[in-house]
């Protein structure tokens, strides 16, 4: 016969033993299998990219002709094309964001005419392909309006300009991309503005802030947290959409590489040149987006996510620090804070 006292004694002994036992973590065999498959695929890809050869026109050469790629990667026409691509991206995004904010505020206005016209704008520019819009700006405008006049409506003209000289392919490209981007940005900005708690506007109003001041200093900075990620997306998308100006005889990065391959027939290596540059710039934009998002997360997250450098520093520190103590050294009950 064992009494309650007899039961409790060995129990206490068992739990002390458990505290010093070795811990065997859960094994994940399938992770090893899938990792193996992926490693083989990566090896095949690297081999194909760098080491495989092919016979073209009787001569054996590297499959991807990296020498040709290297030769044109920093060619002057390519670099000029890059400048055009970057200029168009920056102009279209800056103008797009400004137009977007204006349209978003208009759409949220209680004035029906304002919100209605913003709606109409968005309907039109989202409803037509940007390729059509670009072509329209390039050829349509000078066809419809041979001269553009600045002056009093229905009255005297102050400045008159010739459309064909004014609307170059660059101007048409910048105009078309900006106006189109504005429609998309307005929806992004509107979503951001709506996401800000109404209490914020009320608190600002109770301090005597005007609507404009409240929008600039209170609502938009908070809306940024919602606005930034899709805007980064739009910027990356825009960088590549600028290649559409090639159809209206704009010479951007893509058209520059096309021009070269039209003369030397090295089509694929020049496509690779263009792709490498697009990848390079999207990588930079991605990094930039991370830091901008981090900046606007102030006050939203209790602790900001570490930057890659901080993470590297932490892991280095971790390696140098003494290893994690075994469970037996950890007190059974972690203190609550």
């Amino acid at each position: 016969m064992t009494g309650p006292a007899g039961l409790s004694k060995p129990d206490a002994g068992v739990s002390r033993d458990r505290a010093s036992m070795k811990i065997v973590p859960v094994r994940h065999p399938w992770r090893w299998v899938t990792s193996g498959v992926i490693l083989v695929l990566v090896a095949m890809l690297v081999n194909s990219l760098l080491f495989s050869h092919v016979v073209r026109g009787g001569t054996r050469e590297g499959r991807f002709q990296w020498a040709v790629v290297g030769h044109y990667l920093f060619a002057t026409p390519v670099l000029r094309g890059i400048v055009v691509t970057l200029e168009l991206t920056v102009i279209a995004m800056v103008a797009g964001v400004v137009i977007g904010i204006i349209l978003a505020v208009m759409r949220l206005s209680p004035n029906r005419l304002l919100s209605g016209s913003a709606w109409l704008y968005i309907w039109f520019f989202r409803g037509t392909p940007v390729l059509v819009q670009l072509t329209f700006w390039y050829v349509g405008i000078s066809y419809l309006y041979t001269h553009l006049t600045l002056g009093v409506p229905f009255g005297a003209a102050l400045v008159t300009l010739n459309s064909t000289t004014l609307i170059t392919s660059f101007v048409a490209g910048a105009l078309g991309l900006s106006l189109n981007e504005g429609a998309y940005m307005s929806e992004i900005v509107r979503a951001g503005i709506i996401s800000v708690d109404e209490g914020q506007t009320e608190a600002a109003a109770s301090l005597g802030m005007s609507k404009g001041l409240t929008l600039r200093k209170i609502v938009l900075p908070q809306a940024m947290r919602i606005i930034i990620p899709p805007t980064g997306n739009e910027t990356i998308s825009m960088l590549k959409t600028t290649s559409l100006v090639s159809v209206i005889s704009g010479v951007d990065l893509f058209q520059a590489t096309q021009n070269i391959s039209n003369t030397n027939y090295e089509v694929v290596p020049l496509l690779v040149v263009a792709s490498l540059w697009y990848l390079f710039f999207t990588s930079i934009l991605t990094i930039g987006q991370f830091y901008v998002e981090r900046y606007y997360a102030r006050g939203a997250a209790r602790a900001l996510p570490p930057t890659p450098f901080q993470r590297l520093k932490m892991s280095l520190h971790h390696v140098r620090a003494k290893p994690v103590p075994a469970l037996s050294e950890v007190p059974w009950v972690a203190p609550h804070d």
Binding site: D197, G199, Q200, E202, A203, A204, A205, S206, L207, G208, M209, L213, K217, I218, P221, Q222, Y296, R298, G299, A300
Partner: peptide, 30 residues
Amino acid sequence: RAEIGMVFQRFNLFPHMSVLDNITSGPLWV
């Protein structure tokens, strides 16, 4: 409104600004 102070149930502090900036926002901007 600038002459009337108001305190809300849900505080409604501006989360993107430090405590000091919250307090100086009215005097500085308004």
